[in-house]
Amino acid sequence: MERAALGDKAAELAVAVARGERPALARALNLLDDRRPAARQLATDLLARLQSGDFQRDSHLIGMTGPPGAGKSTLSAALIRVWRQRGLGVGVLAVDPSSPLTGGALLGDRLRMQTSDTDEGVFVRSLACRGEFGGLSAEVWPMSLVMLAACDVVMIETVGVGQREIDVSRMADTTCFVAQPGSGDSVQFLKAGILEVPHVLVVNKEDMGAVARRTLAELGNALGRSHRDGNWQVPVLSTSAANGTGIEALADTLAQHHAILLRDGQLDTRRRSYQAHWIIKRLQQEFGTHGIARLGGENTLAARLVAEHQSLLDQYQAFRQCLLNPTYPEGGNTDHAQS
């Protein structure tokens, strides 16, 4: 297909997505999942459109992680209800923890059914990990960008501590970690640095009483005063999704963090550095450390990616083309052409 025709198609889709049309959002998510070359090109154009000024909005990307059994799904469902009461459109990317050996996966069953079935303001897409070494699939972040164009709040929900949790914290504007009461794991992970410090810590299940209160205190101590992110002091909150307590306060805290990022102009910076991180990771997976070295090394490349204000897949495709070109000079000190 001609590039111009594709451009029209991408523009149409972008407009429909930004209008919040559900079939368009579903189609766009399918497209970002599609590995065929024509679809890749269309996806690149779509993201470029959506990341251009016309469709920019102050949507909030939140990552929810935590160990299994912490009550994350019910807490997420309770949060969604609060957001809906506040009139916000909500998108969810639910990443399934199963590590399939067969390529197959079991999805759903975690979140959608706890939210209202007739509400047009919630859109849930489930994703399999698809064997990405325990981390999140490559599609997750581009998909969240599409959802951000259609929704006010987008939540990436995933289970587990480790690579997935690290991956989420390198995509989300705000990372929220839900701890399991009575399990010392979260505290230990935090102290040992296995758990990246999230922006918001939650102990759900305060209905469990003393156990939850003890975990709350331990987490507070483990964090100490030193855990700040710019102007943000990391809070430890207590909720009970079962009793519906603390949910409004959690929604408020998440919104405050977003407001501070916007006020300090950090939101854009943060997303650009995440974007650079995503591209480098992708290139590294395909071309290895040598590929990154050809592009000038990780730090140089990151700086370049952050400085250029181009869309995610455009940048990715451009550097990919460079590396696929055997005559591309070692060291990467020439300008890469936008081909």
Binding site: R22, A26, L106, L107
Partner: peptide, 30 residues
């Protein structure tokens, strides 16, 4: 379970769904 073993990504959300819930889930999940 068989679908998962055969390599499908399976969306299954349990019993007692309304036709509206099923139609919406099919669309949202692509």
């Amino acid at each position: 379970v068989k679908g998962r073993d055969a390599g499908f990504e399976i969306v299954y959300e349990g019993i007692r769904l309304t036709p509206g819930q099923i139609a919406r889930a099919a669309q949202e999940e692509g």
